[in-house]
Computed example of a mutant assay.
Amino acid sequence: MHLARCLPLLALALALAAPAQAAETRHPTPKEVLDASPLADWREPVPENTFYIELPTGRVVVELAPGFAPAHVENMRKLAREHWYDGTAVVRVQDNYVTQWGMPEETPRPMKTAKDKLAPEFTVPGGVASLPFTPLPDPDAFAPEVGISDIFPAARDRQTGEAWMTHCYGIVGVGRDMAVDSGSGAELYTVIGHSPRALDRVITVVGRVLWGMEHLTALPRGTGNLGFYEKPEQRTPIKSVTLAADVPAAAREKIHVLSGQSASYGQWLEARRQRQDDFFIRPAGHIDLCNALPPVRRIPG
């Protein structure tokens, strides 16, 4: 047969084969990965590292990260157990940036055994060797390498050996003044907007909001400089902060978070990079760190 006549037939054959080939290479959706994941790939928040922050609208669950900031986390445990946080308030909500809470400046409160100043824990020296880490396959604009350490977004530098937690939506950091040793964990904030990664290694980062983020993002924005509230009545009171370890097991929040070192997380990550849900007509083939945080779910039953 003449070549010119063969080409249309070849094109038709390839077109007919394309759907079958696409079906063979179809990636599962993120939901399909999570639905098929074994229970062993999930874990409950560690009670000794988990804060329950009670606001008028509901509970916020924060898991702390002693692997990244051990001194600050220990200080925060003391503040919680001594009820220092009870009666503090949300003092600042800056749109597309942070919600911040602590003791208003005009009503200082002395501490008992906790310290009011700590040396900064901006990075973990030797963290490359000591911390678990699942690297992301895509490049990052702020660090040589990024990935997930347990359930937290992290970065590291193999040349210096340092690792650090990064600023993503829902990550909790320690407020400080200009002096680097002016933070203690008494004043905290969480990211409520686009990830301010320029703050990485500038502020001590201590944890991640796992549940109840809506209670911190839906608050009225402050009208003062940097989103601070200008009048006391604008602030949202914090009724109490309690460690989950000090709450009866039956009364603890029934949530699971996917381990960043599990096989299911690796599959979920790739499903997010190559999304083929019906809505995603063009897979990105790429994911940034702050879109790769291990998911959280209610415990079945």
Rank of each mutant, 00 (worst) to 15 (best):
F133S: 07
F133D: 04
F133K: 11
T134G: 03
T134P: 01
T134R: 11
P135C: 10
P135R: 14
P135L: 11
P135V: 12
P135W: 10
L136G: 09
P137F: 08
D138E: 15
D138M: 04
D138I: 06
P139H: 10
P139I: 08
P139W: 09
P139S: 09
D140R: 05
D140E: 06
D140K: 06
D140L: 05
D140P: 05
D140G: 05
A141S: 15
A141W: 09
F142M: 13
F142R: 06
F142H: 13
F142C: 01
F142I: 05
F142G: 02
A143Y: 13
A143R: 11
A143H: 15
A143Q: 12
A143N: 14
A143T: 11
P144C: 07
P144L: 06
P144H: 05
P144G: 03
E145Y: 02
E145H: 01
E145M: 01
V146F: 03
V146D: 00
V146I: 06
G147M: 12
G147F: 09
G147Q: 07
I148Q: 04
I148V: 14
I148Y: 03
I148E: 05
D150K: 04
D150F: 08
D150N: 08
D150A: 11
I151K: 00
I151E: 00
I151P: 00
I151L: 09
I151V: 15
I151H: 00
F152D: 04
F152H: 09
F152N: 03
P153I: 12
P153D: 10
P153V: 12
P153F: 10
P153T: 12
A154K: 07
A154R: 05
A154V: 08
A154E: 11
A154C: 08
A155M: 07
A155K: 03
A155P: 07
A155E: 14
A155S: 13
R156W: 05
R156E: 02
R156S: 05
R156G: 03
D157Q: 01
D157H: 02
D157A: 06
R158Y: 01
R158I: 00
R158D: 01
R158Q: 04
Q159K: 15
Q159R: 14
Q159V: 06
Q159P: 00
Q159L: 05
T160L: 05
T160C: 06
G161H: 12
G161F: 10
G161S: 12
E162A: 14
E162P: 00
E162D: 15
E162N: 15
A163N: 00
A163K: 01
A163L: 01
A163D: 00
W164E: 12
W164P: 13
W164C: 09
W164V: 05
W164N: 08
W164F: 14
M165D: 07
M165W: 03
M165G: 03
M165S: 04
M165I: 06
M165Y: 02
T166I: 09
T166W: 02
H167K: 07
H167V: 03
H167F: 13
C168L: 04
C168R: 02
C168Y: 03
Y169I: 12
Y169T: 09
G170K: 10
G170L: 10
G170D: 02
G170M: 09
I171Q: 14
I171N: 13
